[in-house]
């Protein structure tokens, strides 16, 4: 009995330790890569693209994000229908990130949408983006400000790994 409670205590400590470090971008094996902020143009909106790999072993979902200089942030998707580009807020306001899978938010598709952008950001500069997950909690990563276009379509030019 004593041994079991010791084990429970140990597990509790381990899980608490995991929680404490959840602001680190790689905790819980949720891997965040190619964080790009398309925020340089003088307009009311902007978007953030990111590649998320869920190695946590359990299904998760991106449920929101926070970034300075935006009136509101929504998760949007874009798709073509009969040659018409359509943009909508994602269903339920969240993007599922199933266990073991990689979900890419990228140009012409899923993106974190900044609405009511206060000012354009300088190309090449960095901005912190907090990603909110159902299970993994909040992960803050650094995004590089990029110009949109086909040069960045693959998400691998100008992309940056998180810096913490």
């Amino acid at each position: 009995m004593k041994r079991v409670s010791l084990l429970v205590l140990l597990l509790l400590i381990v899980s608490l330790a995991a929680c404490a470090s959840s602001d680190s971008a790689e905790s819980g094996e949720m891997v965040i890569e190619n964080v790009q902020a398309n925020m340089a143009m003088p307009s009311d909106t902007g978007s953030v693209w990111v590649k998320i790999t869920n190695n946590t072993g359990q299904d998760d979902a991106l449920i929101g994000a926070e970034m300075a200089g935006c009136g509101a942030i929504e998760l949007h998707n874009m798709f073509m229908e009969n040659d018409v580009m359509i943009m909508r807020e994602v269903e339920g306001g969240q993007i599922p990130i199933p266990a073991g899978e990689t979900v890419e938010l990228k140009q012409g598709g899923l993106h974190i949408m900044c609405i009511g952008k206060e000012a354009p950001l300088e190309l090449g500069s960095s901005i912190d983006v907090a990603l909110n997950f159902t299970n993994a909690g909040t992960m803050t990563v650094s995004a590089t400000v990029v110009e949109p276009g086909t040069m960045n379509m693959d998400g691998d030019s100008g992309g940056m790994k998180m810096d913490n």
Binding site: N38, S43, D44, M78, M87, H111, P148, G149, M151
Partner: peptide, 17 residues
């Protein structure tokens, strides 16, 4: 339209290039 966050600016950025 300018509210469009990536396809529109992406096209203009491509044409500028």
């Amino acid at each position: 339209y300018t509210f469009c966050p990536d396809v529109c600016p992406g096209t203009l950025s491509n044409l500028a290039a």
